[in-house]
Simulated assay, not measured.
Amino acid sequence: MDIFEKVVSPARRRLWTQGDEFLCGFVARHVDVSWARTSSEVLEAHGYAADDPLFAGEPFVDVLRFHPRATLTFVPATGAVDGGGEGFVGLPPFTGTGFSPTTKGLVPLWWVEPTRVPAGSELWRIHTDGREEFLSAYANVASGWQPGQGRALPSDVCGTFSRWKGVSFLADELENDRVVLASFRPFDGGKATERGLWAHVVEAEEIEDVHALRLTATLNGLRFQVARRWNDGTGTVARLVYIGRDAPSADDAGLERVDAGVYETTARLEDVTDVRGEELVRTTA
């Protein structure tokens, strides 16, 4: 099975150290970028400019390595045709060809739609001299990052879910055809985890379906996916990820660039319109 690799921006890394697990953006197969040994070569391989302000002052670069899962959606990183269609409109050095041009040849790039970090993913740090340093691993939605990081709870509107005994749970596929189910509240068979959730492991054949949850909304004329929501004591606040795939438009709107092609903002839920939710079923029993 292929291993995919994603360069992790400092902004995303800081959120992950708080326990967050949101994943989105451009990725490459590890086998296609294995020649990249130093931090500068890794950035080049993944299509980042050498002077990208996202990494200013960092003497290293972090990468996430993960296996694809049924609920991950990979989209070829190709540009929009004549300014329209479903492709991406990016900033240099994005080429729109679906490849990153490097001194070692072309590297195929994909876009991973907003989701949760897959179970078993590993976070590594690549130094300027090529030394690799293991930082942490994302065990699964029930246990989070290991060794233990922040205590942020998982999103209830983004990621992988499974239906068991007619009830939908946060879920992750494990080894040996098992699935871990997690809930914010106690449930029959569930045990408390160090993350503050309740979890239970079942055989995959007991699962009724596996699906990705997608909640979208419009703010100031732009379309977003809701990555996370919480109550700040006065109402519901949402972290929104721009899904319009038009970087210049996102810049013009003053959105926060947290990664290549990834723009986010925070808004009160009452300020967004046209909220739509859907379950993208990937497998069924």
Rank of each mutant, 00 (worst) to 15 (best):
R214F: 01
V141F: 02
H127M: 10
F187N: 09
F187H: 10
V179N: 03
S162Y: 05
S143I: 11
N176K: 09
L123T: 07
A199T: 04
F134M: 13
L197M: 06
E206T: 04
V141M: 08
V117E: 06
V107Y: 10
L170P: 04
T193W: 01
G166Q: 13
E175R: 11
G159W: 11
H200E: 11
A137L: 15
T193S: 07
L197H: 03
W198K: 04
T128V: 12
E122Q: 14
R125K: 09
V107N: 07
F184Y: 10
L181E: 05
P108R: 08
K191C: 02
L215M: 03
A171V: 10
A152P: 07
A182L: 04
L153S: 14
L170V: 03
S183N: 03
Y138P: 04
F161E: 13
I126W: 08
S168R: 08
N140M: 05
A119T: 02
L123R: 15
V210T: 11
H211M: 11
Q149P: 13
R214V: 00
A192W: 06
E133S: 13
R185P: 03
A171N: 06
R178L: 13
G148F: 07
H211R: 03
G150Q: 13
T216V: 02
S162R: 13
R151W: 08
S162L: 06
T103I: 15
E175Y: 05
E133F: 06
V210H: 01
A119K: 05
E194W: 01
P154F: 07
L106W: 04
P118T: 15
G166M: 13
H127Q: 08
V180G: 03
E133H: 13
E175A: 13
T216M: 01
L135Q: 10
W198T: 13
F161G: 07
G166I: 01
F99A: 04
T218C: 03
H211C: 09
V157N: 15
R185S: 06
A171F: 04
A142F: 09
P108A: 15
G150R: 07
R151V: 10
T193P: 01
W164D: 05
T103C: 03
P114I: 02
L174G: 06
S136R: 14
A152W: 07
G189A: 03
A119W: 09
D188T: 08
W198Y: 11
P186S: 01
T216W: 00
A192L: 11
T115C: 11
L153V: 00
T216C: 05
V141R: 05
C158A: 15
A139M: 08
L215C: 10
D177R: 13
S162H: 14
K165M: 11
E173D: 09
A139N: 01
A212N: 00
S143C: 10
Q146N: 12
